[in-house]
Design a protein around this nucleic acid. Sequence first.
DNA 1: CGACTCATTGACGTAGCTCAAGGTATGTGG
DNA 2: CCACATACCTTGAGCTACGTCAATGAGTCG
Lengths: 223, 223
Amino acid sequence: MLTPRYFFANDFKQFYSYFLTQPHKKRFFRKGEFLWESGEPFQRIHYIISGAAQNYMEHENGHRKIISFHGEGTVFPGYHQHDYKIEQSLITTAVSDMNVLEFTKEQFRQMFETNPQLSANIVDWYSTYVNRLLYETAHQEYNSSLTRLCNLLYLLTGNETDHPDLYIDMTQDDLSDLLGISRIHVTRGLSQLREQEIILTRRKQIEIRDLPALTEYCSLETL
Amino acid sequence: MLTPRYFFANDFKQFYSYFLTQPHKKRFFRKGEFLWESGEPFQRIHYIISGAAQNYMEHENGHRKIISFHGEGTVFPGYHQHDYKIEQSLITTAVSDMNVLEFTKEQFRQMFETNPQLSANIVDWYSTYVNRLLYETAHQEYNSSLTRLCNLLYLLTGNETDHPDLYIDMTQDDLSDLLGISRIHVTRGLSQLREQEIILTRRKQIEIRDLPALTEYCSLETL
DNA sequence: CGACTCATTGACGTAGCTCAAGGTATGTGG
DNA sequence: CCACATACCTTGAGCTACGTCAATGAGTCG
């Protein structure tokens, strides 16, 4: 039973060697560079060999919403044919140096049409993406800011694995942009958790000290 | 350039005759019946011949979030293989009497794997669904309640077509559940628009009298 | 006619926002 | 290696948009 994910990785790893046999371009992006710029329609699709990217949207009033992270062994953005207005506000940047395989929409279409395993995988990827968005739209929206924060921290530990990652390397600004809660309010929530010795906060990092206690604050839907 | 949609219809119409040739079950649902019940894992997929369904989610604290409507000539839910926890809180009910073709996941998988046009269409459907969810998560979230309301009304007129539908047949409760805003606040927003003679309100219906004036209240992303 | 369901308006409370000021790591250039 | 700039974090104070509660009105249906 899958829970929402903010970080996508390794869900296309099995196609790496196949991708290499198909027409593509090898590219390198330095940390901070754009893979997909604001205002540009969606045109190229990347298979990520190493490094990670962040996908976010800029609101006309200046707010920034981080939607997802994409790391090694995954493909972003999801392949499709339509053009959506909202894509003009989407931005993808490298959060670390990246090596990728770059495909045009047309090249990817070729593969989609001739490789049934690939097309099945793309649909699964979409369903995972939908799941993450549904979680936010239909669940998180109704939670208090503290619950939302705790849910996010819990999910970022990669709860599904046997080895939860207890160090979340992210600024409070990023958490705020992921949650759609003001940075100051995020700080207040974290302070509260810190007082209860559930977490430790430091520069660009949250350390989870007491995962069971954290889950006490999470909504049922999250666990 | 596509804008978000809340109402899905006719995007699988071209497969109707194909679907009829494939293994399926014809079913009839009376208004109010469940196509997919709460707690039940996702198992069956419906092609809608006539009538319409509503897909919503129930939050553990009692809130109800309407996600989308699905009418004639479309398929719901989207085909996929994984099981997501959140699906246990999803509910689909008939909002009018419905005639559908019902497929099991397995039957649909067969079609997905053997009909490339169908699989391409499924991916396009997913991208449209993602677009609607992104719109809400990354855009509406940052708008004031009045802007959100106006955006929704505008989108519900079916703005893309040449013949906008100026009568929105929906209770204020439904609008509130679509927007994630309290019913009372929805009423207040509507009152404001009514005072400016942009809309007329009546039982289970909003009539748009002045569409251009309405768009003045919409966010840029919506138009 | 009575019993729903749906819509409206007022009064009031509060979660979360913004503004403001200050504190503490980290990195850079002289 | 120091000092200075910058990025990041913390806390307080006050405001406001939106939520809840409560009372009433207005269609609709059996």
